[in-house]
Amino acid sequence: MTDQDRFLIAYASRHYADADWTTKADRWTASFYTEADTTVFGTAEITRVALGAVPNPRQTLDADPGVLDRIPRVVFTEDGRLVPLVAELNPSLLLLLESVEVTEEWRGKGVGMSLAVTALRRLAIPGTVAICYPAPIHPQHGPGEVCSYESDDPEVRRADEEAVVKLRRAWERHGFELIADGVYGLRVGPA
C-alpha cells in the first residue's frame, strides 16, 4: 500500500451566478488519488455555507439538497438561522460533508475519512465548523426516502445500524461531536 503522505487531493467547485445563493448550493468535490497513480480512488462532496452571505441556507438546501438530507434540518431553523447548539460554536463558515466514497480496495482502512477531514481542514477559514451525518450511502435513495436503516424490518436494518455505530465512532475519533439526531460537528478552523 501507499504511505498516507503520498495521497493527494484535487478540488473542484461549482459556483453559480445567482449572487444571493438562493437556488443552488456552493458545492466542492475533493478527489483522492496517489502520487504514483493519478486514478481517482475516492471523493468527498462538501457543501459550503458562508454565514451572513446566504439569506436562508435551509431553504436553498431544500431546493438543491444534493445528498444532504438530515443535516440542513438539524443545523438550521425554518427561517435559516443556526440552531442554538451550532450557534454556540460561533461559526463564520459551515462545511457540510455530504458524502465520502472510496473504491472497494480502499474501504475499511480509514483512508477516505482521513482524507475527507484533511479536505475539510484545507477548505476552512478561521471559525469554520464542519458538519457530517455518519451513515452508509445509499445512492438509490433520495432525500426523504426511507433507507434500509429506517426500515420497519429489523433484519433489513441490522447491517446499516451496525455500520452507523462504526461510522459514528470513527468520526468521533477524528474529534467530531454529536450535535443532534445523528448529526456531528467539529471546529476545523482556528477560532
Score class of each variant (00 low, 15 high):
9 I>E: 04
11 Y>W: 02
11 Y>C: 00
12 A>H: 15
18 D>C: 12
20 D>R: 13
26 D>Y: 10
30 A>Y: 08
38 T>H: 11
40 V>L: 00
42 G>Y: 03
44 A>L: 06
45 E>S: 09
46 I>N: 06
49 V>P: 06
50 A>Q: 13
52 G>H: 06
58 R>Q: 15
58 R>C: 10
59 Q>K: 10
60 T>C: 14
67 V>G: 05
69 D>T: 01
74 V>R: 02
75 V>Q: 05
75 V>A: 04
75 V>C: 09
76 F>M: 00
76 F>A: 00
78 E>H: 12
80 G>C: 00
82 L>G: 11
85 L>I: 07
85 L>R: 12
86 V>N: 02
87 A>M: 05
88 E>V: 07
88 E>R: 14
90 N>E: 14
91 P>R: 01
92 S>W: 04
95 L>K: 03
98 E>C: 05
102 V>L: 02
104 E>C: 04
104 E>V: 12
104 E>Y: 11
104 E>Q: 10
107 R>T: 10
107 R>I: 04
113 M>W: 03
114 S>Y: 04
117 V>E: 04
120 L>G: 08
126 P>W: 09
130 A>Q: 02
133 Y>H: 15
134 P>V: 09
137 I>T: 13
139 P>L: 13
142 G>F: 10
144 G>I: 08
146 V>L: 13
151 S>I: 11
152 D>E: 14
157 R>W: 00
157 R>C: 01
157 R>M: 01
158 R>T: 02
160 D>A: 15
161 E>T: 04
162 E>A: 13
166 K>W: 14
173 R>M: 03
175 G>N: 03
179 I>A: 14
179 I>C: 13
180 A>R: 11
184 Y>G: 05
188 V>G: 03
189 G>E: 07
190 P>G: 04
